[in-house]
Design a protein around this nucleic acid. Structure first.
Lengths: 272, 272
DNA sequence: CTTGACCTTCACACTGTGTCAAGCCGGAAG
DNA sequence: CTTCCGGCTTGACACAGTGTGAAGGTCAAG
């Protein structure tokens, strides 16, 4: 017979936990003194304690541990749980590795620049969106060329939507495609509910399962700065860009570009 | 200006969390309507939100995130935190990998035997212990040879301790060393507080930083079964044994070996 | 009998997040 | 202008596993 303290010390758990297991019915003391309430454990209960500890160390919850040790599960169910746990652990492993890469990237960055970045890149999922859009050709990828094409395009888009009585239901999005001969096709889009409209193209922007995003504040002439931060992040964190970037306009001020806020989104995949 | 719902949807967090961050002072809405209490966020707050999310994704706690984004930390402290986090992540990674190995080992075992083992191996740390001991030579490692040497040895040990008025303060431990010529030296030890004694050897059993342990119930003649389970576990889980095993007697019944309970402890290290 | 170590129960704390309930508010439709 | 729905507010409870502390009873040794 062991007192709770002795049993705990030998079993590498705290007495607190033994009481907890008792309360959960996971491991009942062999004897409880009726008068004093003292718990006493027998030596052969170490087996059960060890099963519990072993299972818990595998990362199962106490409830799952309970189901497993009390053999409420068939071998088949058990296999299932273990496989599930295996998958979870593989996932966890990948996630930890990615975090580690990110932390290391940040350390490198801090060594290089002497401070932490204030514009932070975030990985997110962007849902598919139905948009109304217009497009046009710009002579180059240069911000100085794109602006004069894009802005009137948005003007026209909103004008036509207004005329058709269609309301935008989200923030405007711009994106670009190679159009050959060094030119690019500029798309001005805005989320809508309707699926038909006369003067504008209605289409579905596909989901981006994983997109690296950064918020850019200020004039689009300085977009390069943010795009470079983004590009470096993607490389440093072990991703590869895949497809065209999108620019979401979060705040627009006709008079003062310094007040603009955009989010850049680049679809990425893990590079192996 | 974004309502909490819009801000949340775009920032990939829940409105619940934004309220939480508000309460923590981590991210205050740009405007709170005094009359209604409605929170309104400005577009440029996405930067801060993203910093928070990025840091949180690195695995920092909200409190740490708060310290970091509010720049209460020098670059040096920041580096420190990142390094610490890096170490933690490496640790986590190793732990996850070990768990994964264990889960896989268990799956193999279940495939092989059709059920889960009921005797579970647990990895633990065993603290250094001061013991009083006697030793003798046994002709072989065979249980049939060891028993007749060990039992009288323990008898003698307890007798001498009793005569010297020294009380054991823990469970008896046996261990074995090669003594050349196929023989082994058998040690019978028991923890004590004193550091001097006449008739017995007093020494310190070294700490076992990592020991694979299993509880064996019943006669020591069947110890092989448990030892084999232990050996297989060590191999399957990517460890290597290192040094001599110890047997701790947790329950002893003079008359009925079936009631005996022992724990076997084998020091191990991760095999690369 | 006293003392000190150990036991009892009960309760609160942490972290990050979900969810529920009761009630107010904003905007659109009738 | 009313009515209605969806979104907002606060407050609370919950989860899982563990630590900690208080208030009080018990065991064993001196």
């Amino acid at each position: 017979m062991f007192t709770i303290g002795d049993f705990a010390a030998f079993g590498q758990v705290s007495a607190r936990m033994l009481r907890h297991y008792d309360a959960l019915g996971l491991l009942r003391p062999a004897v409880v003194d009726q008068a004093t309430g003292y718990r006493y454990y027998s030596a052969d209960q170490f087996s059960r304690l060890n099963r519990i500890v072993a299972l818990k160390d595998l990362g199962f919850s106490l409830q799952q541990v309970g189901e497993i040790v009390d053999a409420k599960l068939s071998a088949e169910e058990l296999r299932g749980m273990l496989r599930l746990r295996q998958a979870q652990l593989e996932d966890e492993l990948a996630r930890s590795a990615a975090r580690l890469t990110s932390v290391e990237a940040r350390l490198r960055l801090i060594e290089r620049e002497g401070h932490m970045p204030t514009d932070d890149v975030v990985l997110k999922t962007i849902a598919a969106t139905r948009v109304a859009e217009l497009s046009a050709i710009s002579p180059s990828y240069d911000g100085a060329d794109i602006g004069p094409v894009l802005q009137p395009l948005f003007g026209q888009l909103f004008e036509r939507l207004g005329a058709a009585g269609i309301d935008p239901c989200g923030s405007p999005v711009a994106y670009y495609e190679d159009a050959g001969n060094e030119t690019i096709r500029v798309h001005a889009a805005v989320p809508v509910e309707t699926s038909t409209a006369a003067d504008v193209d209605i289409l579905e922007l596909p989901e981006l399962t994983q997109a690296a995003t950064i918020v850019h504040q200020g004039d689009m002439m300085e977009a390069d700065r943010s795009m470079q931060t983004l590009a470096r992040w993607i490389e440093d964190n072990g991703y590869r860009s895949q497809g065209y970037a999108r620019e979401v306009t979060l705040q627009f001020d006709m008079d003062n570009p310094a007040n603009w806020v955009h989010e850049f989104q680049i679809p990425v995949t893990r590079s192996s």
